Simulated scan of single mutants.
Amino acid sequence: MIAAFETYLDKIEDPSQQARVREVLNWVQTAFPQLEQRFAWNQPIFTDHGTFIIGFSVAKAHMAFAPEGAVMTEFADQIAADNYNPGKKFGRIKWTQPVDYDLLKRIIAFNLADKADCTTFWRK
């Protein structure tokens, strides 16, 4: 894991939350080794050929995943089925809820395929 991610993780006070975020970030790296790790907007993000794929952040009640609005719309039913609290461009996984790695895998794979020819950081 890159040093910026470690610095971010070290700032998460609750050890169980810190461990969970570390587990998710390590899972992303293992499942999608081609993704580049970056730290931007005070959160760990993953990119592919310079385009945004997914980011993660933490709050008191949840961990958020942010794959962009188009992806939230594409996977709205699955996000609702997991009882993740969706925002327009991100979803919230309560600390008490399990992480649906299959859903995260499909979200990341969708972004990789959908943005394969994207030449900008964000979708246009």
Rank of each mutant, 00 (worst) to 15 (best):
Ala4Leu: 07
Thr120Ile: 02
Ile2Leu: 05
Thr73Pro: 04
Ile12Gln: 11
Trp27Thr: 11
Gln43Val: 07
Ala81Gln: 14
Lys11Ala: 13
Asp114Thr: 13
Gln18His: 07
Phe121Asn: 09
Arg123Met: 06
Ser16Thr: 08
Gln97Arg: 05
Val28Met: 09
Ala3Gly: 04
Thr120Cys: 02
Gln29Cys: 13
Gln18Ala: 05
Ala109Thr: 15
Leu103Tyr: 02
Thr120Arg: 05
Trp122Arg: 13
Thr73Cys: 01
Asn26Leu: 11
Cys118Ser: 14
Trp95Arg: 00
Ala3Arg: 13
Ala80Asp: 10
Gln43Phe: 00
Asp100Ile: 06
Tyr101Phe: 09
Asp14Thr: 14
Ala31Ile: 08
Arg92Leu: 03
Arg38Val: 07
Gln78Ile: 15
Ala61Trp: 02
Gln97Ala: 03
Thr47Leu: 07
Lys94Ser: 12
Phe5His: 15
Ile12Asp: 06
Tyr84Lys: 03
Phe110Leu: 08
Ala61Tyr: 04
Asp82Tyr: 02
Glu36Pro: 01
Asp82Val: 13
Trp27Lys: 08
Met72Pro: 04
Gly69Asn: 07
Glu68Gln: 14
Ala116Asn: 09
Phe39Lys: 03
Lys105Leu: 05
Tyr8Ala: 07
Ile53Glu: 08
Leu35His: 04
Asn26Cys: 09
Asn42Lys: 04
Phe56Met: 10
Thr120Trp: 00
Ile53Gln: 12
Val99Trp: 00
Arg38Asp: 01
Lys88Gly: 02
Tyr84Trp: 06
Met72Val: 15
Lys60Gln: 12
Tyr101Ser: 04
Asp14Tyr: 03
Ile54Lys: 13
Thr120Pro: 06
His62Ile: 04
Thr7Phe: 00
Phe56Trp: 01
Gly69Ser: 12
Glu68Leu: 07
Arg123Tyr: 00
Lys11Pro: 10
Gly50Pro: 07
Pro15Lys: 06
Glu13Arg: 14
Asp48Glu: 12
Asn42Trp: 00
Val24Ile: 15
His62Val: 08
Tyr84Ser: 01
Ala80Lys: 15
Val99Asp: 01
Asp77Phe: 01
Cys118Asn: 15
Asp100Leu: 01
Ile108Ala: 11
Leu35Pro: 00
Thr73Arg: 09
Asp77Val: 15
Gln17Lys: 15
Ile2Met: 06
Met72Ala: 06
Pro15Tyr: 02
Ser57Trp: 05
Thr7Ile: 08
Arg92Gly: 09
Ala59Cys: 10
Met63Tyr: 02
Ile2Thr: 09
Asp48Phe: 12
Glu68Val: 12
Asp48Lys: 15
Lys11Thr: 13
Met72Thr: 12
Leu103Thr: 15
Phe52Gly: 13
Gln37Ser: 07
Arg92His: 08
Gln78Tyr: 01
Arg22Trp: 00
Thr119Met: 03
Met72Lys: 08
Arg106His: 10
Trp41Cys: 01
Gly55Phe: 00
Gln18Met: 04
Phe75Leu: 03
Phe110Lys: 13
Ala76Tyr: 03
Ala116Arg: 14
Met63Asn: 12
Lys94Leu: 06
Ala109Phe: 01
Gln97Asp: 04
Thr120Glu: 02
Trp122Asp: 07
Asn111Met: 08
Leu35Arg: 09
Trp41Pro: 02
